[in-house]
């Protein structure tokens, strides 16, 4: 009897834990919506989404267009993916296929530790190292631009991509590789023609998760991308991302003002983007697991 009571209490505790997490997530989402909605009493949704000028403190006519920041976020993120995906998959293939067990045992934890470097440190690297380098190559006055941000975010997304892609490659049944090798395929042909296609959904999912991290990253891009309030036209233009805008302005805004609510609306937009990216990666990952079964 007591044993059953104990079981029930433990069951209840775990249930409460789960509930708490879900409640917290829902709470954040609701808070975002509730705080963001009042912004749209004064700002038209079309202005918010489709105009490029963000000038909430203007005396004459405050404007709240996130298009330029949205473009900045997407530019920096896409650039980061362009750099991180090939390098990440290449490294994962190396770790899964070529590296000796000892190298793998050392390299994989090291890669995963890379994920733990504080973003402010990466941003610092961007200012003192990557920025000047970019400036010299493209002959710009300083290197604080979208490309700099992309390089740094690529560094931050790499651990996720490498680690999960390697897992996906290792999950490919040995029988596929044996079949390929037995037909006279070389090791690299096997990796490229059999293993990577078979692990593709896992690899895509890892890239999406890396992308999710890149989109939401704040401190690094705040420090390294120049924070210019204008529509970017190329990778060497300075940009300001959605996250950087919130981080810069939220501390100084008057509580309850339209500007205040508008910043939450920016947060909501960001939330929706990352949510969709994560959802997509989840769907792909799920499909992948079904295939492997």
């Amino acid at each position: 009897m007591i044993k059953r009571m104990k079981e029930k209490i433990i069951h209840g505790l775990f249930f409460l834990n789960g509930l708490l997490v879900i409640a917290a997530l829902l709470g954040i989402f609701l808070l975002l919506i509730v705080t963001a909605l009042p912004a749209f009493k004064e700002i038209r949704l079309s202005e918010f989404l489709f105009t490029a000028v963000w000038d909430p403190t203007s005396y004459a006519r405050p404007s709240y267009g996130i298009l330029a920041m949205l473009a900045g976020t997407l530019l920096v993120t896409c650039g980061a993916l362009l750099i991180a995906v090939p390098i990440g998959i290449g490294t994962a293939a190396y770790l899964a296929e070529v590296a000796s067990p000892r190298v793998r045992e050392i390299a994989k934890p090291v890669v995963e530790v890379l994920a733990g470097i504080p973003s402010v440190v990466i941003g610092f690297l961007g200012i003192v190292l990557v920025g000047p380098f970019v400036a010299r190559i493209f002959h710009t006055s300083n290197g604080l631009n979208a490309l700099n941000g992309s390089v740094l975010l690529a560094i931050m997304a790499l651990p996720t991509i490498i680690s999960l892609s390697e897992d996906a490659l290792n999950a490919v049944p040995v029988s596929f590789c044996e079949a390929s090798l037995a037909l006279g395929a070389s090791r690299w042909q096997t990796v490229i023609l059999v293993k990577i296609p078979a692990a593709l959904s896992g690899i895509i999912a890892s890239c999406m998760l890396g992308m999710g991290r890149a989109i939401g990253e704040t401190m690094t891009v705040l420090m390294a991308t120049g924070c210019a309030q204008a529509m970017p036209h190329s990778f060497i233009d300075p940009v300001r991302t959605l996250t950087a805008t919130i981080a810069i302005e939220l501390g100084e805004v008057a509580y309850g003002s339209t500007h205040y609510y508008a910043l939450f609306a920016v947060g909501l937009a960001l939330f929706i983007i990352t949510f969709m990216v994560n959802l997509a990666s989840d769907v792909i990952l799920h499909k992948y697991q079904n295939v492997v079964k």
Partner: peptide
């Protein structure tokens, strides 16, 4: 070895077609 395996084909215990 690659050439050897082309000359000596193998069929495995559990059928293992590629996902193609």
């Amino acid at each position: 070895v690659v050439e050897l395996r082309r000359r000596v084909g193998m069929v495995f215990q559990r059928s293992n077609p590629f996902p193609k």
